[in-house]
Design a protein around this nucleic acid. Sequence first.
DNA 1: GTCGCATTTATAATTGATCTAAATTGAGAC
DNA 2: GTCTCAATTTAGATCAATTATAAATGCGAC
Lengths: 145, 145
Amino acid sequence: MKAKIYTAEEIPGLLRDHGINATFQRLEIARAMFTHGGHFSAEDVFTLVNGDQPHVSKATVYNTLGLFAENGLIHQVIVDPTKVFYDANTLPHHHFYNVSTGTLSDISAHDVRITGLPPLPEGMQMDGVDVIVRVRHNKKEAAAS
Amino acid sequence: MKAKIYTAEEIPGLLRDHGINATFQRLEIARAMFTHGGHFSAEDVFTLVNGDQPHVSKATVYNTLGLFAENGLIHQVIVDPTKVFYDANTLPHHHFYNVSTGTLSDISAHDVRITGLPPLPEGMQMDGVDVIVRVRHNKKEAAAS
DNA sequence: GTCGCATTTATAATTGATCTAAATTGAGAC
DNA sequence: GTCTCAATTTAGATCAATTATAAATGCGAC
């Protein structure tokens, strides 16, 4: 089960469905993310959108990503202490995080099952479960210490 | 299965076992973390260690936390985009992350079982699996939009 | 046109974390 | 004890991601 890739024509409806007012900048940003799919830092989005000529300011990129995340259009992924990633894939899924390169890749949640979790603390509701499988380059060299 | 809490006397041996040279500052920091147990930001540790009078500089706190993490004495937990947490619990376990308050709490990994993960990408080895259960305060008020 | 509101923008400010270069300390040789 | 070298600590400067601020801009209602 792969992340859905949208066509440019579907983007306006996508925003509307999430209660987001469509503006030029928001469409640009959504288009950049959803027609590629994948994981983006704010910086990535900024570069992607402004590739040819400046369209969208950095502040707007941050604002918009925040707005999208609030409204469930995209999802924050926090694996890198230095920056936040945003995930255009809203289907339930998990992540490989390549520690060596700082790269994320998806794990479909379709077959993943997590059992034995304790009950939630009192008065809490579950917001989601993130599973992050940290991986690194295979070292022939063992820890020689 | 709770995180092990150490007594002050056990700390020097703990460092030695992890190949860490014991110095005054490192002992102070380890003591602060391991006699309490729990999750700490660098800031937390700094405050905890220097509560009464300045003992350890901020730079040293960062250096030492990094050193401890490298040597497996503590573990980085990345759930908050604004700061890194360090976990004095090195037993296998997972986390509840309270989105409303930014608080972490432990889930023993003892009973948790994760099945259906795909094979690792080529040439990669697993470094660990983090499970983060995001929870939030129960809202009687549903999303009214 | 212009009033009002949402949005965007440039820029400054904030903040956790890291770097630098110098000072201090520690452990062993003598 | 003291010399020496390497390890450690330190204050302060610096960095990069993000957020805040306050001024423009766009756009529909009238």
